[in-house]
């Protein structure tokens, strides 16, 4: 386990603390990471990829100094290694134009508006990670305890 990364990107440290705390129960199965800028995120993903760890989910703010969240999602979506990464915007500040861009070119999977509540954030994260695991991981059994049990069990049942 700990083969997949869940990455939160936000320029505000307080937000990162809160998000990581909200999804802390996943730390037994996933590498939870935080980055304060897109540049840091990019470096981090590259480093982990050398170690064979894949980016399963990115929770990304949009409006940050320097590079914007949506642009990074588009970049991830154009990269073969991270095309399958589940992409979630966690922001209060993406306009319609950027959101459309994120959907069309960034392969956006979900949009969470700030302020969020921890239960629905966790629900979205679990849902997205389950989808990712179902598509990218053979050993589903390991994830039954933390992700969507019903979907995983059904998949196991169907694959015999």
């Amino acid at each position: 386990m700990e083969d997949y990364i869940v990455l939160c990107i936000d320029d505000e440290r307080e937000i990162l603390d809160a998000v990581l705390q909200d999804i802390d129960s996943l730390s037994s199965h996933f590498i939870l990471e935080a980055a304060e800028s897109v540049a840091e995120a990019r470096e981090l993903v590259e480093e982990y990829s050398l170690a064979g760890k894949k980016l399963a989910l990115v929770l990304c703010d949009h409006l940050m100094p320097e590079e914007k969240g949506v642009d990074y999602l588009v970049e991830l979506n154009q990269n073969d290694e991270t095309r399958n990464t589940r992409k979630v915007l966690l922001t209060g500040q993406a306009g319609l134009e950027q959101t459309v861009d994120a959907v069309n070119r960034g392969g956006l999977d979900y949009y969470i508006a700030k302020p969020w509540d921890s239960e629905s954030l966790m629900q979205v994260v679990i849902d997205q990670l389950t989808t990712y695991i179902l598509r990218n991981e053979e050993n589903l059994m390991d994830y039954i305890s933390v992700l969507d049990q019903e979907r995983l069990l059904n998949a196991i049942h169907e694959s015999g």
């Binding site: 049990q149 059904n154 196991i156 015999g160």
Partner: peptide, 17 residues
């Protein structure tokens, strides 16, 4: 008649909720 694994997955999926 089915694999024990698939059977267990099916029944747990029914039972888990």
């Amino acid at each position: 008649f089915m694999s024990n694994t698939a059977t267990t997955a099916l029944m747990l999926a029914i039972l888990a909720p």
